[in-house]
Amino acid sequence: MIPILMYHQIADMPPKGTPYRGLCVPAKKFAQQMQWLKRLGYRGLSMQDLLPYLEGKKSGKVFGITFDDGYANVHDNALPVLQALGFTATTYFVAGHPGGHNHWDIEKGIPHSGLMNEQQIQNWAKAGQEIGSHTLDHVHLTQLPENEARRQIEASKYGLEAVFGVPVTAFCYPYGDESAAIREMTRQAGYTNATLTVKGLALKEDDLFGLPRVTVSGNIGLVAFLMKCLTQKEHKRRVKKEKQP
Rank of each mutant, 00 (worst) to 15 (best):
T215H: 11
L50N: 04
V62P: 01
Q152M: 05
M47Q: 14
G210Y: 11
D206R: 02
G99W: 05
D207C: 08
G22I: 02
T186F: 08
K199Q: 14
A180H: 10
A155T: 02
G128K: 08
Q9I: 00
A84K: 15
P245S: 12
Y175E: 01
R183A: 14
P174W: 04
A180K: 13
G44C: 09
G159I: 03
F93L: 14
E130T: 10
G128Y: 07
G190I: 09
A202R: 01
A11S: 12
Y7K: 01
I106R: 13
E146M: 07
A125T: 14
E154P: 00
I110D: 02
P80C: 10
T90P: 02
S179P: 06
G86A: 11
Y92V: 02
A162R: 14
M6Y: 02
L5F: 08
Q122L: 14
W36P: 00
P3H: 09
D12N: 13
K204Y: 05
I106M: 12
L222E: 12
Q83S: 13
S217P: 00
P3L: 07
V139G: 01
H8C: 01
Y175W: 13
V139T: 11
F67N: 00
I65K: 03
Q32G: 03
P98V: 05
G100E: 06
F67P: 00
Q48C: 05
N102E: 02
I182V: 15
L51P: 00
L82Y: 09
G218H: 03
D206M: 10
T66D: 07
V81D: 08
R150N: 10
L115R: 03
